[in-house]
Design a protein around this nucleic acid. Sequence first.
DNA 1: GGGCAGGTCTAAG
DNA 2: CTTAGACCTGCC
Length: 288
Amino acid sequence: MEKLHQIKIYYKDIDLYSTLTSGQCFRAFMEEDNSFIVILIDRIINIKQKKDYLIIESNKEEDLKEKVITYFDLKRDYFKINKEILKNNPDFKEVIDLCEGYKILKQNPLETSISFIISQNNKVSMISKSINEFCKLFGEKVNFKGKDYYLFPTQEKLTDLKLEDLKTLKIGYRDKYIINFINKLKEQPNFLKDLKHLNSSCALKELMSIKGIGLKVASCILLFGYGKFDVFPIDTWVKQYIYNKYKIVGTNNNICSKIKEKFPLYTGLCIQYMFHYNRNKIKETSIY
DNA sequence: GGGCAGGTCTAAG
DNA sequence: CTTAGACCTGCC
């Protein structure tokens, strides 16, 4: 039985629920006490809010505080950013208010890439199942508070992956896209590391040169895996919001350039706010 | 059973 | 350069 490490971080301005359950990450589990289990790259954590503190338990002590701060983007001043966004778009206030405490997670680029390749034209529940199965097959098992969890596999572990290894994942035609991606990593082992240093439009181009990664998935990878706030994933929810609010239609490229004009600062964050807002509105007004 | 889900590829104009 | 259609799969 591994020793349990606990830390406390003074931080109150985060909404763990909306941050962890709005489709940025697919492997956060809510516990009965409203805390969350998060597979935080190389460790498992349990995180909960208690008054003005975040209470975190983990199986691994090393750099725990730093890892949590980075993952949940706690150093960024979202109040200041929100104010700047509002200055350009006062009518965005209702959205901003609903998204108070919502953070852009900084996840593992490898996990983000594969997760969002799987996510295309797929359901969130299915995406989670497939990714968990993927980790179970190829990732390291970690016992945490009496339960087994699986880390996301390392790049080295994935280099020998074959198409037929993916058959049990129920990811359908996306299996060959994963293999394309892994082949790219085999050719260029530093591919993911190098993306960090590219500007967003170059990084998008690099990612989209891989068959199976389009504009939407590439944008998700850069926003959620690299914290590049100047890319913005346009999906069905966001499209719907933009249509309802601004009557903007057209191809994704079209929508992208128009929304960039309207929200020149932190466009990626704005889009994510819209996504979260619209999903919540739909849920609220749903008769089911 | 048809439609749909945080899209992308392909082929055809 | 733009745009239908097809596409795995499970769940309603």
